[in-house]
Design a protein around this nucleic acid. Structure first.
Lengths: 177, 177
DNA sequence: GCAATATGTCACAATAATGTGACATATTGC
DNA sequence: GCAATATGTCACATTATTGTGACATATTGC
């Protein structure tokens, strides 16, 4: 599955042959674990979604302070790396699969919790009031992806990456600490 | 080409049949204009690259003030929409094509000009000094893409989008006006 | 070591996408 | 209207991918 996710991230139509190769097995073996392509995609989606949700829930609960909750959720998402990128792209590109399942993500309590933090900070007027929640949500995902990409491509040192991400996200939403 | 770019944005392996359909012609006609898939991709790349470069060069020259140059370049990129997303993804995913041509983009004077603006602002200490140029470059592209996506998906009103993008980009790099 | 399980190898059918030739039918420019 | 050009239709070969059956060979657990 991680071999598949690695490829799916940037190319949803990658051949099963290549995925099997990356995983160090033959295509025949891959077919033994996943009946067909759809099955593999679904399994990846479920596993990666669970992993991302778990990490972000833990981050949410890691501190009482709203800002630290937010920062830790950002860091958790970044640490998920390819898993997060895959899930994000999965839900963005409706063509990637049937999008009925979109609700699974949308209605998930991770998003609810994330929104709660943002709303709290908005109420306390610690976030730029001009921006909408939807914009901030998109921005969050976008900064996570940029960070993952920047590290992968070697553009930015891994050490710096989370720091940069937090500085930029804070600034982007006008967060007053 | 615009039909192709529309699809290539999110799915580089879309069938020529669908592109032809989107363009309102048959696949046979598509094959008359583009010998093969590679040819179509190359043509799209060249056209979209030219369009993006033109728009951003004009934006650069539109004002003498460094900050307004930067803002207008951001707006120009956003207005390019699908064209910009396509080019961006093209150069990100090496698998999308041979990446020899990456230099075309990297060495292009648009990037040089963009970098000059950032360096000037850095020298004047008007940008957060902790961030690297590479990070800021990635961030710029990322905010452009987020904006394009947010409008396309209906998450954010078109009217608000550029304003949000500029507010967030300014904040993200700690720009002091 | 031996049985159970997992994996590899090979062959094969089914399908989808690609690219082209031949010819028919529109469409355009004048 | 007529010639030139563009497009559509259909048939076809080629190729890549997918999914499966049959059997051989490793690997594991005990």
């Amino acid at each position: 599955m991680s071999a598949a996710v690695k490829y799916f991230q940037s190319n949803e139509s990658i051949s099963l042959e290549k995925i099997a190769e990356e995983a160090g097995v033959t295509r025949r073996t891959l077919h033994r674990y996943f009946e067909n392509r759809q099955n593999l995609v679904e399994s990846c989606k479920n596993e990666m979604l669970e992993s991302c949700n778990k990490a972000m829930n833990e981050a949410y609960e890691s501190d009482d302070d709203q800002i630290k909750k937010l920062r830790n959720m950002l860091f958790a998402a970044i640490e998920q790396g390819a898993k997060y990128s895959f899930i994000k792209r999965f839900y963005e590109n409706s063509s990637f699969s049937d999008l009925e399942s979109k609700n699974e993500f949308e209605s998930d309590n991770v998003k609810t919790r994330w929104l709660k933090v943002i709303k709290n900070l908005q109420n306390e007027k610690r976030i730029n009031h001009e921006l909408t929640i939807n914009w901030i949500f998109n921005l969050f995902g976008s900064i996570v992806e940029t960070t993952i990409y920047a590290v992968e491509s070697g553009d930015v040192a891994k050490n710096d990456s989370k720091k940069f991400a937090w500085i930029s996200f804070k600034g982007a939403i006008g967060l007053k600490e």
